[in-house]
Amino acid sequence: MRFARLPWLVLTPALIFVFVGVFAPLLMTHDPAVQDYTAILQGPSTAHWLGTDYLGRDLWSRIVGGARTSLVAMAFVLVAALVIGVVIGSVAGYVGGLVETVLISLIDIALALPSLVIALALMGVFSGENFDWLSDYWKMVLALTLAWWANYARMSRAVVVAELQQPYIEAARVMGASHLWIFTRHILPHVLGLVVVYASADAGALVLAIATLSFLGLGVAPPTPEWGQMLVDGMSYIEEYPNLVIIPGLALTAVVVSFNLLGEAFALQKVPRALRGRLLGRKRAERKAEDQARVSVEGQA
């Protein structure tokens, strides 16, 4: 389990994913939404590199388009959840008192249900008439953001509280530094350093969540290519054309494995020792297990 030598190999799917997502329009050979009834359910050929689906849409272009859909949604959700989480967590940790109690209760409530269940429930709420002005795609981004911020908030608060106890904060205060100065110059860099690393590891879980929502028919609406939705469409033809299921499934799995390995590599090597415990802190038990994994890994090295 030496990741020091591995990352470039294991990161390849994640890097390809980002590259394909960014340059999707250049890589597509066909319009992923265009249906061609003269070329339905074809195998791979020079015209259609990966074949076509039940509506004659080019599978390669849909895979490429799906990468872009996931990448863009993931980026929006990660950035938004990170900002919301850092703001709420920092306010709770820095201000303290009643504000902290209220915000922590809010975080605890948000963590009482799995993020994906919250996202599903919010998709339900957004289906109401008051939200008709939002497109399905943005409903999904909003729902995932609101389901995803709590972990970042809890992490940010923990870092703020830990940093506030350091002597240099007191020193800065004695020298007459304002709260704003202390927070932005001394505390925020610590918070961001940790949270950004965690976010890069969290990307895999988010790609999975986006695909799961679409799989359940509650994410990206049909003409837009998306891997989870391609997979569920392909299920109807699974007996004769398993490719329609296997190709998007493999793409998705490769990306998630890659991001998860990235997270593991970060957790084991890149993060300052003092903060490592919090990095993995989704569930107490998982965290403990990872801590012990680290002990044994370091013991071997």
Partner: peptide, 11 residues
């Protein structure tokens, strides 16, 4: 821990 549930089921 990385393979989506629905892909496992499909396979």
């Amino acid at each position: 821990a990385s393979t989506p549930n629905f892909f496992v089921a499909a396979l």
